[in-house]
């Protein structure tokens, strides 16, 4: 029991929580934005993989770290354009099209990576983001180490979450996005073009997913390897439901989730000899399923989610 207390009282755990949460925050926000406009984007897993690869590749070839992020965001946006073309213009099944985007984006990432980076014994690395020192705040006892010793993208992710919460609930654009997700016919009657809103939301959301992936290679680790996203995208999709499609709750959900993940990682080192490590690794996935089971009925689903909009056809 005291071991558990030691883990929770260590500043290292809380620093890790914020670090683990960052890609989840960005990915969940991206998926949330798409779904608020009525489009489920299961391309997330592949878009994160591609973002991780292309962001890393840009930096490996001499770009600076923020340019790497930008490249990942642009690439994510392009995959968003593909997904929007399939699901908004053609109105195809959002499930199947999203899976197609994931399969294509991830296999394409591996192809490009293998083509441009020769096989080596140790994977090539870059110098990732370093924690920034905030005068005053970073020197605080405990809090300084636990909260204020993160890399810049982590702070950026939290700011993006707050900005998105404001955008979705406090601006005319946010209203247009929500209307399109609830009832595109009514939105059109108000002079909003649901097609344009859906395209915009899916492209912007996918750009966030690309950034979520880039965080893995540009801040959390320093190299790219296949399968590094490890289902984080699917967890983000589950977190959107858990967050009931609200950006603030998405932030909290990602943090809560990261807390359990960081906690199990540290618990492994305590109980590692007794309990197989795979049981610990299962926890995030099982938790996501549990969260879905608890929240699915209670969550307010955007009413037009997964329904294609075709003018003059109901």
């Amino acid at each position: 029991m005291s071991a558990v207390f030691d883990i929770i009282a260590s500043a290292g755990l809380w620093a890790a929580v914020l670090r683990i949460a960052t890609p989840l925050i960005l990915g969940t926000l991206g998926a949330l934005l798409c779904e608020r406009a009525g489009v489920l984007n299961l391309g997330i897993e592949g878009i994160m993989t591609f973002g991780a690869m292309i962001g890393w590749l840009a930096v490996y070839n001499g770009a600076d770290l923020w340019t790497g992020f930008l490249v990942a965001a642009l690439a994510g946006g392009l995959f968003g354009l593909l997904h929007a073309g399939l699901t908004v213009t053609l109105g195809l099944s959002q499930h199947v099209s999203g899976l197609g985007v994931t399969l294509f984006a991830s296999s394409f990432s591996y192809y490009v990576f293998r083509l441009l980076v020769p096989v080596a014994g140790t994977p090539p690395t870059i110098t990732p983001f370093q924690p920034i020192h905030i005068p005053g705040l970073s020197d605080l006892p405990f809090l300084g180490q636990a909260v204020f010793s993160q890399t810049p993208p982590t702070y950026a992710a939290i700011l993006i979450a707050l900005a998105l919460a404001y955008l979705v609930f406090r601006t005319p654009l946010g209203l247009a996005i929500r209307m399109t997700g609830e009832n595109p016919h009514a939105a059109e009657a108000q002079g909003i073009n649901p097609m344009v809103v859906r395209y915009g939301a899916v492209i912007a959301g996918s750009a966030l997913m690309g950034m979520a992936g880039a965080f893995l290679t540009l801040s959390a680790f320093n190299s790219f390897f296949p399968t590094m996203v490890q289902g984080r995208g699917w967890i983000c999709i589950a977190l959107v439901v858990f967050a009931s499609w609200r950006p603030q709750r998405a932030l909290l959900g990602a943090l809560l989730f990261a807390f359990f993940d960081g906690f199990q990682l540290r618990l492994q080192t305590v109980l590692g000899g007794v309990v197989p490590y795979q049981l610990f690794l299962m926890i995030p996935y099982v938790l996501s399923i549990a969260a879905l089971a608890v929240m699915a009925r209670r969550a307010r689903v955007p009413q037009a989610l997964m329904q294609p909009y075709r003018r003059g056809e109901r």
Binding site: L42, H95, Q230, G231, W234, I235, I237, A238, V241, P276, Q278, L279, L281, M282, Y285, V286, S288, I289, L292, A293, A296, R297
Partner: peptide, 23 residues
């Protein structure tokens, strides 16, 4: 029972199953 979308749950169970086998 809970109207949970099976796409996400089946996807997540893939990881659980492979970890279970690995264990």
């Amino acid at each position: 029972r809970f109207s949970v979308d099976e796409v996400v749950t089946t996807l997540l169970l893939n990881f659980v199953a492979v970890l279970f086998v690995s264990m």
